[in-house]
Structures are given as structure tokens and as C-alpha cells.
């Protein structure tokens, strides 16, 4: 533990002025930011209770208040909300963990080993994900259509295919975030472990990864959110089969608003707001890792 934290912990009670100086303004900033962050959500929430689903009515309490929109998403065999929910959470979690694993391994190599082609790899990773994604879905469709002829189980309608394709994006910005973080871990720590006879795997699993927990937690969360909201690719892979039970939340909910003129924003808003819950829960859970970072690890290591 570093000293500053201990000093603060030792003080039993703060004076009001000190509380204001140290913590009060932080609460103020936080509350202000939260108001800004939640402000649009208030209107989404109000639209979700509006039987007419008028997002732009901008009335805090809608004229036609009711639970119709929630009923529409909860009891509708064509739109099995809870199955979508489960699919989305399972796929997103699996993807987040896989992305983290692949990203952490690659970043370890990029941060700790000097091998041929390292700089090229780093630059490629940076540059290649700048390619506008909107069209790559055409390419992936063609690719999957070809795989579908030979290995249908690994193609349309397969969550496994979806996760594998997502994993192709693991070496992207995430790898850079992790590598940046690994770089800040002093190399002396693993040098000395090496002298003690630790293998590269031991250094990776026992030293680097525990120290990098905050960054890993961030990556998991980012990937999780990204997958939860991913629409284009998921709809191509999971939407082709036409089984509503295959869909995720982002793809399923879209169906409420993809009519030509009759877009049902009410149920969409209801469904989307509820979809934020797992994200918040996951982050609440991950936060103990976010703060348990370098300092905590360093005393052990």
C-alpha cells in the first residue's frame, strides 16, 4: 500500500471544510456528469411508458401512460425477448473473455518480446481497423456463404461462428490498450522472476496478468458492451436462418423499428433500457479489479 491512501484511511473523521475540499466537489462533478449522462435516458424511459411510443413528445409523463410496450416485448412468441436477452449476454460474455484472452496474449508478446515483424504487426493492427467496417460485412457474408456449403455448422445461425469472427477483431484497439498498460509494468519485475527460474508462461500468468487486472477489466467491459450493441454482423450471421430464437437483443429489437413508416419506438425503448442492466451489473462487479491495480499487485510481486 502506498502512503497517501494510508494517511487518509488513518484519519477518523474529516471536518466539513476538508470534506468539501477533498470529496464534496467530486460528488458535485459526479452528480453533474450523471445528470448529463442520464438526461436523454429520461426521455427514452418516458417513451417506453407511452402507449403511443412518442419519443419526440418530450413529456416527462406521457398522456397515454401504461405498460403496453413492456407487455409487447414480454409476451410475444415472435419476439422472445428473454431468449434474445440470454443469447446476447451469453455471446457477449464469451466474446468479451475470448477477446481479452487473445488480446492479452498478443499484447504480452508485443510488450515483452523483441521479434521480427513486431513493429509491422503493431502498425498493421493500428491501421487495419481504420478501414470502414460498413462494407466488410459484404465480404464476411460471401465468406460465410462459401463455408456454409462445406461446414454448415460453422456458418449462419451458429453463435460459435459469430464469436470466432468477432475474435478476428481482438487484435485491434484493445491490443493497443493492453500493450500500453503492460509497458508501464516495470520490466525489472519479470527480469528478476526470470533469474529465479520462472518460465515465460509463469511470468505471464503469475505476474503480468494480476498486475494488469484493471486494464483487463476495462477490455472485458468494452468488448461486452460492443457485442451487446453489435447489429450489422450479428444480423447477417444470426438473422439469415430466420429462427427468432437465434437472435440477440440488438438484432431482435431492431425488428420493432424497421417498418417503412410504422416504427414502434415504444417497445424498442423499453427493451433497450432493460438491456443496459447487465452492462451496469458487470461493471459493478468488475470494479474491484479496476481499483486493485498495479499498487496492490506490486506489494505482492
Amino acid at each position: 500500500m502506498t502512503t497517501i491512501e494510508q494517511v487518509i484511511v488513518k484519519e477518523k473523521r474529516m471536518t466539513t471544510s476538508r470534506w468539501l475540499r477533498v470529496l464534496g466537489w467530486r460528488h458535485l462533478v459526479a452528480i453533474f456528469s450523471i445528470s448529463f449522462a442520464l438526461f436523454p435516458l429520461v426521455w427514452m424511459a418516458s417513451a417506453s411508458f407511452d402507449q403511443l411510443g412518442l419519443v419526440s413528445a418530450q413529456k416527462l409523463i406521457p398522456d397515454n401512460i401504461g405498460l403496453d410496450n413492456y407487455r409487447k416485448i414480454f409476451n410475444n412468441p415472435e419476439a422472445p425477448y428473454f431468449i434474445w436477452y440470454r443469447n446476447a449476454v451469453v455471446i457477449s460474455l464469451a466474446n468479451a473473455l475470448l477477446q481479452m484472452a487473445i488480446g492479452a496474449c498478443a499484447s504480452y508478446a508485443l510488450s515483452r518480446f523483441r521479434f521480427q515483424g513486431r513493429k509491422v504487426t503493431l502498425l498493421t493492427i493500428l491501421v487495419v481497423q481504420m478501414f470502414p467496417q460498413l462494407l466488410s460485412v459484404t465480404a464476411l457474408f460471401v465468406l460465410l456463404a462459401e463455408i456454409n456449403q462445406s461446414i454448415p455448422t460453422l456458418s449462419f445461425g451458429s453463435p460459435l461462428a459469430l464469436i470466432i469472427i468477432f475474435a478476428g477483431g481482438a487484435l485491434g484497439v484493445n491490443a493497443w490498450i493492453l500493450k500500453g498498460f503492460f509497458d508501464t509494468i516495470p520490466t525489472e519485475i519479470d527480469e528478476s522472476a526470470k533469474v529465479d527460474g520462472a518460465s515465460h508462461a509463469q511470468i505471464f500468468f503469475k505476474i503480468i496478468l494480476p498486475l494488469a487486472l484493471p486494464a483487463l477489466a476495462v477490455i472485458v467491459l468494452l468488448s461486452f458492451i460492443g457485442t451487446m450493441n453489435e447489429f450489422v454482423l450479428t444480423s447477417v450471421i444470426m438473422g439469415v436462418t430466420g429462427d427468432p430464437n437465434d437472435l440477440t437483443l440488438a438484432v431482435g429489437l431492431q425488428r420493432f423499428i424497421d417498418g417503412q413508416y410504422d416504427q414502434q419506438w415504444g417497445p424498442f425503448a423499453a427493451g433497450a433500457l432493460l438491456a443496459a442492466i447487465p452492462v451496469m451489473l458487470l461493471f459493478l462487479f468488475l470494479q474491484k479489479y479496476v481499483v486493485s491495480g498495479l499498487t496492490a499487485g506490486a506489494t505482492k510481486g
Partner: peptide
């Protein structure tokens, strides 16, 4: 180093670089 980075790179080629080239 390859043990750590190759799986990611192979996936990158298949699902990010290939679609970009295809485009």
C-alpha cells in the same frame, strides 16, 4: 513470442484483413 501472438494474428488475417482486401 509466436505462441502468444499467432492465434490472434491468424484470426486478424481471416476476419479483418481479408474482408478489407475483399472490399
Amino acid at each position: 513470442a509466436g505462441k502468444y501472438i499467432i492465434p490472434g494474428v491468424l484470426l486478424l488475417i481471416a476476419f479483418t484483413i481479408y474482408p478489407a482486401l475483399f472490399t
